[in-house]
Measured scan of single mutants.
Amino acid sequence: HAATELTPEQAAALKPYDRIVITGRFNAIGDAVSAVSRRADEEGAASFYVVDTSEFGNSGNWRVVADVYKA
Rank of each mutant, 00 (worst) to 15 (best):
V36D: 02
N61S: 10
G44L: 04
E42A: 13
S59N: 13
A28H: 14
V64D: 02
A45S: 04
D41Q: 15
S47G: 11
N58T: 13
A13H: 13
K70Q: 09
I29K: 10
N58A: 13
E42D: 09
T7L: 07
V64T: 01
R63D: 03
D41T: 15
F26V: 01
G44T: 03
A66G: 02
I22S: 00
P8Q: 12
F56W: 10
G30V: 12
D67I: 08
A11T: 03
A45Q: 02
N27A: 13
G57N: 08
N61Q: 14
E43I: 15
F56M: 13
V68Y: 07
G30S: 14
D41E: 14
T53K: 09
N27F: 09
F56I: 15
G60L: 06
R19F: 04
T53H: 11
E43M: 15
E9W: 08
A3V: 12
V65C: 07
N58H: 11
H1W: 07
D52T: 11
R39Q: 08
A66Y: 05
A13K: 14
T7E: 04
D67Y: 13
G57I: 06
A2G: 14
L14I: 08
A32G: 03
G57V: 07
S54W: 12
F48G: 00
H1D: 06
I22R: 00
V21A: 05
D67R: 02
E55W: 12
V33M: 13
A66P: 00
S47N: 08
D18I: 11
D67V: 09
D18W: 09
E5V: 06
H1I: 07
G60F: 04
V21W: 05
W62T: 05
V33C: 07
D31P: 03
A11S: 05
F56H: 09
G24S: 02
N27G: 11
I20W: 07
V65P: 00
R39P: 00
R25C: 09
A3N: 02
N61L: 15
T7V: 06
E55K: 10
A71Y: 12
H1G: 12
V64C: 05
I29R: 13
S34M: 14
G44M: 05
D41H: 15
R38Q: 11
E9S: 11
A46M: 11
S37T: 07
T4W: 10
A40C: 07
H1V: 07
A35W: 04
T53E: 05
A66S: 02
H1S: 09
S59A: 11
